[in-house]
Each structure stands twice: as structure tokens, then as C-alpha cells.
Amino acid sequence: MELMTAVAVIMVKVVLITVILFIVPVPLTWLERKIAGHIQQRMGPMRVGWHGLLQPLADGLKLLTKEDNIPDQSDRVLFKIAPFVALVPPFMVFVAVPFGDSVSILGYETKPYLSDMNVGLLYILAVAGLEIYGVIFGGWASNSKYALLGSLRTCAQLISYEVPMGFAVIGVIMLSQSMNLSDIVDAQEPLWFIVYQPLGFFIFFIAGLAEAQRIPFDLAEAEGDLGAGYHTEYSGMRFSFFMISEYLVMLTISVLCVLLFFGGWHGVLIPLPAPIWFALKVGFFIYLFMWFRFTFPRYRYDQLMSIGWKVLVPLSILNILITGIFVY
């Protein structure tokens, strides 16, 4: 009976998280277009629903009814599975992401996350690294020069920025003495880690921008020179899978920033429920991503590489050193 309840609870959580993650990108596309509009003094979508709120549904319907085009001479198997390969890792990441303290529903004590693994942070970084395969397979299987160039760039970019990202996280691990995310959040209850780790956060956030392939590091889909990058040849539902996974990676990076540097669900001053604090902080980071996107131009490829290897990696090693001295 105990086992049955446990399995049932896990199943409910899995379904809940999956549904939430599928739904979250929908308002995000609307939000992105609205923010883009208002930054450029436009209004963004206004016609479908109140202030265009139903626009994502209309877009989804359009994508569903579009032709699923597969290019000639392409690697058909890889071309078909690439969107799913891109979609799975962001979902896997959220297995280890805690959303709050333990709550009791109907007398049953449970924690709002799937797995409380003690290598949670490492697992998240590892799984987030798998995101790259969807991009590579999609770009290579398309048999198109733009897609291939886009995926080659992505490949190099993601590998390069995983290094400073991992190094930046080490400072947090040193402070909290744990890789368990809920332990890390609990360690921040007196003071957020952003106070101790401004440099670490800075490196993590920039590397996160690059990992999520957002401006100013969106060379993978530099529409000016590559069409649309690795998903040039995709259309319809498969294209929308790529879009969903991109938004989920952005969400992942925002959630990680909040959990690692901004105290997770712990609020300050105003006593709000933990999930609301969490959502507010994540929302702030998502807004930051979008704000950046419509403010900055794109870096050149060599600038991207030199920022990654010549600036961020040495800085992150310096950060580890400083943190080490202080912890000791």
C-alpha cells in the first residue's frame, strides 16, 4: 500500500510538471512579443483576444495545420527524431528542480519536486548539456548549409560556455557544502548567495545566456547570416518543438539563477507564499532575458569565443580561488 501511494504521488507529480512545462512556453511567446513590441514602441499582438492573449493559441493552431516538410536527401530518421531529442532534456532537468518547501495535501506530506537527489546540481548541468544533441542532429540531418553551419556554431558555443558555467557553480557548492538544490536554497536563508558570489552570478548568467542561445549569443540562429540556423528546414509541429525547448532552456537558466544565487523560494521583507516568491523571481529573470534580447546586438563569432575562453574561464577560476580563500 505504501509503495502504491508513493508511486501514485510520483505519477501525479510527473504529469503535473510535464503539463506545466508544456503550457509555460505558450504565455512566454506572447510575453516575448509584447515586450518586443513595447520596447520598440509598438503594441505587439492586439487582435486575438484581450491584448492578443490568445495569439499563442492561434500560432499553435497554425503550426499544427502546416505541412510537415522533410527536405530531399536529408537523413530522414535523424531529421524526425531531432525535435524530440531537443525537447527531452529540458523536461529531464526539472526532475531535480525543487519548487518549494514540503507541503501537505490532504494529510499527505510531500515535497514539490520529483527527486531529491544529492547530486542534483551536477545532474542538472549534465542533462542541460544534452540539449545540444537536438540542435546538432537537426542541423546535420537537414542537409542544408545554413542548418549545418548553425549547428556547428551551436556545438562550439555550448561546449565553450559549459565550462565557465560549471566553474561558476563551484563557488556556490563550496559555500553550501552540497550539490543538493534544496540544501543550497536552505543555505541561503540568512543571506542570498548573490551577496557572496557577485562574480559567480555574473559568469553564470552570461554563460546561461549563451547556453540558452539568446541574444547577444544567438549565433546558432543568426537570422541575418544563417536563415534560421539549425531549424531552417523545419516546419509545423517539429519546428514548434524546437521553439518549446528553447523557451524551456531559458526557463531552466532562470530557475537555476534563482535557486543558486537568489535564495530560491525564500522571500524578503514581504511575506508571500513560497511558490509566488519563486515565480516572481523566475519571472524577473525571464523578463531580463527578453529585455536583453531587444536591447543588444549580436556578438561576432570570434568575440563569442574570446569572451568564453579568455574572459569567463579565467574569471571563473579566479572566483573559485577567492571563494576558496574565504571559505577556508
Binding site: 551536477l122 545532474y123 548539456g129 562550439a156 561546449i159 559549459e162
Partner: peptide
């Protein structure tokens, strides 16, 4: 040994195989 599993994913799947495919 979840640590080893994460490292396996991180190093082999996340880095080495990417270079192979690259």
C-alpha cells in the same frame, strides 16, 4: 552511485560524444 552517473552524462555524453559528432 548517482555522482558517477552524472559524471558519465556530463563527460561522455555531454562533451566527448559532442566532439565526436562535431
Amino acid at each position: 552511485s548517482p555522482f558517477l552517473a552524472a559524471v558519465q552524462l556530463f563527460v561522455y555524453v555531454g562533451a566527448i560524444m559532442v566532439l565526436f559528432i562535431f
